[in-house]
Amino acid sequence: MVWQGEVGEATSIGQNPDQGMMIFLSVTQLLDVLRDLLQGRTAITRFVGVDSSFTLTFKATKAGISVTSRSGKLGVASRAALAATVLHAADELADSALEALPAHDGVRDDYTAALNQFRSVARSL
């Protein structure tokens, strides 16, 4: 996973300790926690990649959503911009790799459900 903002970058690639993650489970979790934040159910949330030490913190501010990692602040994005960017990346992952999972795999079903719910929230912003 790579996150880039106007003042910083966070990546799970090549880190020590290893920050590789179970990507479909992790992105499903990311979509769920961001959906709650974007809907105003929470003002701050933390994402931790599944089976990883990679973390991001998202905080609602007057200026938008602040994103930080262990290395520091990445930047601030509007709710709509963050939602659109995350949706685009999640759609790309689904388009390029989701078919590799068996058709009736629970992970595939969970990912698809989370993606559809997130898409609905993103379009409402």
Rank of each mutant, 00 (worst) to 15 (best):
V2Y: 09
V2F: 13
W3S: 04
Q4D: 06
G5E: 04
G5M: 10
G5P: 07
G5F: 05
E6V: 05
E6G: 03
V7G: 05
G8S: 01
G8L: 01
E9T: 14
E9H: 05
A10D: 00
A10H: 00
A10G: 00
A10Q: 02
S12D: 14
S12G: 11
I13N: 05
I13E: 06
P17Y: 07
P17M: 08
Q19L: 05
Q19N: 11
Q19H: 10
Q19T: 09
G20C: 03
G20W: 01
M22D: 09
M22H: 04
M22R: 06
F24G: 03
F24W: 00
L25F: 11
V27A: 01
Q29V: 12
L30T: 03
L30K: 01
L31Y: 07
L31G: 05
D32V: 08
V33A: 06
L34I: 08
D36L: 12
L38C: 07
Q39P: 03
G40Q: 09
R41T: 06
R41D: 13
A43L: 13
A43P: 04
I44R: 14
V50Q: 06
D51L: 11
S52K: 09
S53M: 10
F54G: 00
L56T: 00
L56M: 09
L56D: 01
A60D: 12
A60K: 14
T61W: 05
T61R: 08
K62Q: 12
K62E: 11
K62H: 04
A63K: 14
I65N: 02
I65E: 02
I65T: 07
S66K: 14
V67K: 01
V67H: 00
V67I: 15
V67P: 02
T68D: 12
R70K: 14
G72Y: 02
G72Q: 06
L74D: 03
G75N: 02
V76L: 09
A77D: 06
A77E: 06
S78K: 02
R79P: 02
A81K: 12
L82H: 07
A83K: 04
A83E: 09
A84T: 08
A84G: 07
T85M: 09
V86E: 05
H88N: 11
A89R: 05
A89K: 04
E92V: 11
E92I: 04
L93I: 15
L93E: 07
A94P: 00
D95T: 13
S96T: 14
A97C: 13
L98E: 01
A100C: 13
A103P: 15
A103N: 13
H104F: 12
D105A: 11
D105H: 08
G106Q: 12
G106A: 12
G106L: 14
V107T: 15
R108P: 12
D109S: 12
Y111C: 08
T112D: 08
T112L: 10
A113C: 03
A114T: 08
L115G: 08
L115N: 13
N116P: 02
Q117E: 15
F118M: 10
F118T: 04
R119I: 08
R119A: 15
S120F: 07
S120D: 13
S120R: 12
V121N: 11
R123K: 15
L125G: 11
L125C: 04
